[in-house]
Write a protein that binds this DNA or RNA. Structure first.
Lengths: 202, 202
DNA sequence: CAGCATCGTGAATCCCGATTCACCTGTCAA
DNA sequence: TTGACAGGTGAATCGGGATTCACGATGCTG
């Protein structure tokens, strides 16, 4: 289960991630993490000065990986419109979250340390800015109507988060059809950004 | 005497609310609440079996008052369209939250007891359902396009919350112009629900 | 091989706010 | 008058997880 070859540091991070994936931040006590890594409590403090520091690092890692995926999804492809790119970004976000509900919940909404909360907020801000930049481009190109891009971005991030986590937050084992949800969210987003339909689709 | 008891009870609730309004749930320790009400720690336990129970009641009270205001705002007025009613509801929500940022944060996003979290979720659900019902009406009337009303409602609640609380969460003393924000949010909402423009704006 | 540094151990300790409880007080009904 | 009870006191206690630390190991260097 645990890669014994990996260094203690890595094993601790891995155990922490695993526990979070399964039961959220709350489940991940120092004792549980240490046990999961096959070391003693004290070992953790050889590598981080507090539990919070460990999780701050973990969040940073996971979030940046996440952001990478989103950025890739939003890349300007062949003849993709801005709206399509926005949809791709949000769709990727949603799909990934739905695949790992607990983890998503921990990243998005679970109560955490102030130290960790700071990471979370930073990530959210980055994500918003990313989206806002995309929106501004769309506005400049005339593909989107004039609007407060930052506010729209914030509302989209929050909206997608809520729609995903709302049903997830407790222990929703309702395995809702991910594809359907993603599609509905994209549809919502398309309207929300004010995509002017090419005079055809409704 | 009953009146004396009610007095203390009210004073405790009031102190708890005041503390939350100022510094959020975290600030509101049992000791602080008791001190605020001018009684001892123990007194609290004559009226609630735990701190969580007190706050559950407090949340319930505050939230139901809030919901009342929203419901009133969303009432079918003279010749109001459904979209106008949705705007009124969201606008009221936003305006009230902006007037009391800390409290709004506590109600929407701050980490709290499981007991209190349950109240919060219940309230959110009610709010979503309220909105969803309104949306369904709009769809039925043909004022809004076909859509997953529940998802749209969830995304709107989350979006408005994020847009309001995102900047608020830390200690943002940025006194943003409330009217502007509210207007922008309403604009966002109008697009998001897919209000068919009266063939004029674009 | 001594000297030194890093890493690991895990039981003991610390922290800190919620909660308890033995003891008052005032009120009211019998 | 009395005694039962609702309400109040506040210092002591509890709980539970984070954190410490005295004591090895292991390994590298001169």
């Amino acid at each position: 289960m645990v890669d014994l070859a990996a260094g203690t540091r890595e094993r601790l991070l891995h155990a922490a991630l695993e526990l979070t994936r399964e039961g959220g931040y709350a489940q991940a006590s120092v004792a549980a993490i240490a046990a999961g890594a096959g070391v003693s409590n004290g070992a953790l403090y050889r590598h981080w000065s507090s539990k919070g520091e460990l999780f701050a690092e973990l969040f940073r890692t996971v979030c940046s990986r996440e952001l990478e995926a989103l950025t890739a999804a939003g890349l300007p492809r062949a003849e993709a419109t801005v709206v399509e790119r926005v949809e791709a970004v949000l769709g990727t976000f949603a799909a990934r979250a739905l695949r790992n509900p607990r983890l998503a919940w921990a990243l998005i909404a679970e109560p955490v340390d102030p130290l960790v909360e700071a990471e979370r907020l930073a990530y959210r801000r980055t994500y918003r800015q990313h989206l806002a930049a995309l929106l501004r481009k769309g506005i400049a190109v005339g593909e989107l109507p004039e609007q407060d891009a930052d506010l729209t971005a914030a509302a989209l991030v929050g909206g997608v988060g809520e729609a995903l986590v709302g049903p997830t937050s407790p222990v929703a084992d309702t395995p809702p059809d991910a594809d359907v949800i993603v599609a509905a969210l994209q549809c919502f987003a398309r309207r929300a950004v004010g995509a002017v339909p090419p005079a055809t689709a409704r």
